[in-house]
Design a protein around this nucleic acid. Structure first.
Length: 262
DNA sequence: GCGACAG
DNA sequence: ATCTTGTCGC
């Protein structure tokens, strides 16, 4: 009776404090503005844009697929794709998504660098948030710093943080987004602009939430994401999502239809 | 204490 | 994240 079984909450608390420290440490290196020539005029110097995503197996919280896609710019054609079967170890804890996904994403880039270094993207779009995050240090920031490459966070849902809520006022602002490219700033209680809601195309009602990841300005990030959208989700991320799902479908054929054991 | 909570 | 069918519209 000395060894009380560690409760999930204890483990979570342990991880939280450890991870918070790591975030504070990495956050020191964060750069929130443009750093490269191509960022001032995309059409002249931008050639490749990357997109990353992870897909999961239905009732399985271990097996997944990590995917990296590189598209040309501005034509948005897939010039490189990499899918890899992975086994997750870290749990998903809101605010700490990076610790669950970054290790595998980094491996994807190492394979790219080894096989097709000439296709290394100049910027990476990440599904998840950048500084639109409780500690202003989301997945996109984390990945950008580890890879030392410009990154942009693109989330499909508003992450409740720093006073930002999807209340009536927010819904009203969303309604006012009339056409693709329209935006409104997401200002937290701190008064800082953490990101922007962007109507990615004329045909989509729901906006995507764009925030700085690393080494890019919010204005450039929003413009870039808009330019990458044929549909609601920017092509690099959308293609990475499609490829990773196809990959898992082949790898786990049974998991597709609902088959539960009695 | 309770609710919220990217993927 | 994942699931499901229909339905609306070009």
């Amino acid at each position: 009776m000395e060894t009380a079984p560690a409760e999930p909450t204890d483990i979570s608390e342990e991880l939280r404090s450890e991870w918070e420290g790591e975030q504070d440490k990495l956050k020191t290196k964060l750069v929130l503005e443009n750093c490269e020539p191509w960022q001032s005029k995309l059409e002249e110097g931008l050639q490749y844009v990357g997109g990353v995503d992870l897909s999961f197996v239905k009732g399985d919280d271990v097996n997944a697929c990590s995917s990296l896609v590189v598209t040309s710019y501005p034509d948005l054609k897939v010039v490189y794709e990499d899918c890899c079967h992975i086994q997750l170890t870290a749990p998903y804890i809101p605010g700490f998504l990076a610790f669950r996904e970054v290790p595998f994403l980094v491996e994807s880039f190492e394979r790219l660098k080894k096989k097709n270094p000439e296709l290394m993207p100049q910027v990476v779009l990440v599904d998840g948030n950048g500084i639109l995050h409780p500690k202003e240090f989301g997945l996109a920031c984390h990945l950008g710093i580890i890879l030392d490459i410009p990154t942009v966070g693109v989330a499909k849902k508003l992450f409740q943080v720093d006073g930002l809520e999807k209340n009536a006022e927010h819904a009203d602002k969303v309604k006012q987004l009339a056409k693709g490219g329209d935006t409104f700033p997401l200002i937290g209680a701190s008064g800082r602009i953490l990101g922007k809601a962007l109507r990615s195309s004329d045909n989509t009602e729901n906006p995507v939430y764009v925030s700085i990841g690393h080494k890019i300005s919010l204005e450039t990030a929003v413009c870039l994401v808009h330019q990458c959208c044929k549909y609601r989700i920017p092509e690099p991320i959308r293609q990475a999502d499609i490829k990773s799902r196809e990959y898992l479908r082949r790898l786990f054929p049974e998991q597709n239809s609902q088959d539960e054991k009695t």
